[in-house]
Nucleic acid binder design. Structure first.
Lengths: 130, 130
DNA sequence: GTTACTGCAAAGCTTTTGCATCCCT
DNA sequence: AGGGATGCAAAAGCTTTGCAGTAAC
């Protein structure tokens, strides 16, 4: 009656899914749009955002707030963390389950559902060139 | 000769600093602007952003990417982490130094300069009411 | 006296939305 | 057939910028 809706597969969505599958570049909506537009010129931003929203709602996609400028998307929804280059904004996955707990006095009454570790630094290229 | 510029104190900046001092609400630029405008109607957004930028450059302020919608600012620049309510976006500080290291194979050549842990969940109020 | 800061308004970007049409299922 | 999805374009937010005037040092 409510909440659940069907996810209709369309050529546009298939293209987005194909682009995201196994993609570890943590693309922005713009990245996704322009990558797909090369192959499928008939593709609008509204569709990209619509699809990302639908995938997010189904838990098939993470929306990352690791970039100052724009949202980035991660098709890998297995628990993992990130290492971010502060210069070029490259993002590297870290698959390691850090054992972290919130101090009890702070956790009081808070229902904790997730965690995410961000490491910042300079990637090899940026460390070398700047 | 380059880079370093003076930080001129102005009434507007004093008001912003006063508002931020000891503030743990992790306000957005809008929050800061409207709070200060009550006392000092002559205050523009440009000045808020200008001042935040200057403080950030001096390392007196953190810009946080913990909110989907807008940047949040934290006047406490001692290493700490955050617990974020996914519903009302409240942010609680966690002063604990988690001992975290990036797996060696990933850290290769990366110059790591910082880390930040985010815990997600529902704050007591939101857990209760919805 | 310099140099930086201020306010205003316009512009820039990213993201969202309204709507008529289209097409999966 | 019907409920989603699409494309387009406009709008909405947040943040940045240009500029002339002003004030801190």
């Amino acid at each position: 009656m409510e909440g659940k809706t069907v996810f209709k597969m369309t050529p546009q969505r298939a293209a987005i899914l194909e682009y995201l599958d196994g993609n570890t570049s943590h693309p922005s909506a713009e990245d996704i749009y322009s990558a797909i537009q090369k192959k499928y010129p008939m593709m609008s931003f509204a569709t990209v955002y619509n699809t990302l929203e639908a995938l997010k709602a189904k838990g098939m996609l993470w929306e990352l707030n690791i970039d100052d400028q724009r949202k980035r998307y991660d098709p890998n929804t297995k628990l993992h963390h990130h290492l971010i280059c502060e210069k070029c904004r490259a993002v590297v996955d870290i698959f390691k389950d850090f054992d972290l707990t919130v101090p009890a006095d702070i956790a009081q009454g808070f229902m904790i559902t997730g965690k995410h570790v961000e490491f910042y630094g300079l990637c090899p290229d940026c460390a070398k060139n700047g």
